[in-house]
């Protein structure tokens, strides 16, 4: 192992290493980052939710967006699978229906990055007791 010779070296090392535990830090404070919840029940998986889930985890990292992608159970919109719920800090959660890779790309670029709304938003018809 190379020696850490100065404080600047240490800080540089830390910034390189930080990505390794970024996910854990985000999990501690999920409210502070963009959360993407992919509905991964049977109906979701059958219509391609898995592909979407992997796309989100990889692309968010590639595009340097600090976010947290999790798999969740059925959200109840089986007609519109795959469904994805997106929580941007400070905004109400939004559920997108019929999400494929192309749509996922739009969600990241348009909604998460620029705050523009897209087609295919499922209007909220429930209140979450956790929130």
């Amino acid at each position: 192992m190379a020696k850490v010779k100065t404080l600047a070296d240490l800080r540089k090392m830390k910034s390189e290493l930080q990505s390794k535990i970024q996910l854990r830090e985000n999990a501690e404070n999920p409210e502070s980052v963009v959360q993407i919840r992919v509905g991964m029940a049977t109906s979701g998986i059958a219509s391609g939710a898995k592909e979407v889930y992997h796309y989100f985890t990889e692309e968010m990292a590639k595009r340097n967006i600090n976010g947290l992608t999790t798999q969740v159970g059925d959200m109840g919109y089986c007609y519109a699978e795959p469904t994805v719920e997106v929580l941007v800090p400070g905004k109400d959660p939004i559920v997108f229906g019929y999400v494929d890779v192309k749509k996922a790309d739009q969600i990241i670029e348009k909604y998460i990055k620029q705050g523009e709304l897209l087609d295919g938003i499922i209007p909220p018809n429930y209140q979450n007791i956790n929130e």
Binding site: V4, L7, L10, R11, M13, K14, L17, Q18, K20, I21
Partner: peptide, 14 residues
């Protein structure tokens, strides 16, 4: 490395 990623040894350096 995980300790360093979690701000380890930064206090000593500071």
């Amino acid at each position: 490395d995980e300790y360093i990623a979690a701000d380890g040894y930064e206090a000593l350096g500071k």
